[in-house]
């Protein structure tokens, strides 16, 4: 029981890291960005390349994954995304799902269709004893990362002027502009940052999920569930939702193997019936 919850939390942390950027994109810019998983994939491949081609260690590779995904995210925001901020959601879906297919093809072309080899550093392999539980070191590392990034994000969002600007723009874009906030630049920075976090999540997922070109599509549904269930535009919402989805998914597969894959959908439907705006809707909704 304990280990199922622990593994569920570790899996949830991964989902949180990847999906939190999507929550901000959907909440702040009202942009339905189905390509968010592609940025996670960019991070994953960047980390693999950094380690296997350039011989970097795992931790520098994590930095590289963030930078690579944030850079690509920034370029795409500037060239494509910002043209569709006011477009119909269907247009946004078409553009972003198109980007997913492009990314699948590009990574298949350069890296082949197979799962990428990855071996975590010595310090993160094996297991250790924690409060009477034998837990995987890598999963423990994921949980620590998740909490650290959650704390960092909450600090930035709630305690800095930049964070207040983001919240103001999420609340009311028109008034934010009309009171002098440069919303377009805010979008650019936030979008790139969210992509960077997704990239970091993608790199961290190397030790848990397999990285292959269909990654962006395969896990998309999980990211969307986390954001919908949690409530778009918040940090805490996706965090709670990601942990619940992670635990439900791992527990389902462990205890009810024949039903396991369906349980998270049941969970999502029930949560949204009870709380249509998500577990933790943002203030003023």
């Amino acid at each position: 029981m304990g280990i199922v919850i622990f593994d569920g939390i570790a899996y949830g942390m991964l989902l949180f890291l990847i999906a939190v950027g999507l929550s901000v994109t959907m909440g702040l810019m009202s942009f339905v960005n189905l390509a968010h998983g592609a940025f996670a994939m960019i991070g994953g491949y960047a980390a693999v390349t950094a380690m296997n081609q350039f011989g970097l260690g795992f931790f520098p590779a994590l930095v590289a994954s963030f930078v690579a995904a944030a850079l690509v995210g920034g370029v795409l925001e500037f060239t494509l995304y910002r043209r569709l901020y006011r477009a119909h959601p269907l247009d946004q879906v078409l553009l972003s799902i198109g980007l997913v297919f492009v990314s699948v093809a590009v990574f298949t072309y350069f890296f082949g269709p197979t799962i990428q080899a990855f071996s975590p550093p010595e310090s993160l392999t094996g297991s250790m004893s924690l409060m009477g539980l034998e837990v995987g070191r890598y999963r423990l590392f994921l949980i620590v990362c998740g909490f650290a990034i959650l704390a960092g994000l909450l600090l930035v969002l709630n305690r800095t002027r930049y964070g207040a600007m983001v919240r103001a723009a999420v609340d009311n874009q028109r008034v934010a502009r009309g009171t002098g906030i440069h919303v377009q630049r805010l979008f650019f920075l936030t979008f790139a940052f969210g992509c960077g976090l997704a990239g970091l999540g993608g790199a961290l997922s190397l030790g848990i999920l397999g990285l292959e070109p269909s990654f962006a599509l395969k896990y998309l549904i999980f990211f969307l569930i986390v954001v919908c269930v949690g409530g778009a535009g918040t940090i805490i919402g996706p965090f709670v939702a990601a942990l619940l989805v992670g635990i439900v998914d791992v527990a389902g597969k462990y205890y009810l193997p024949e039903l396991g894959a369906f349980l998270i959908y049941v969970f999502m439907v029930i949560t949204l019936l009870v709380r249509p705006n998500g577990l933790i809707p943002r203030k003023g909704l």
Partner: peptide, 19 residues
Amino acid sequence: PQEREVFPSLTVEENLTVV
């Protein structure tokens, strides 16, 4: 603005300092 439209998820002080 009409209807005030203060930022609901900012405190009073943040509503002032953010701009």
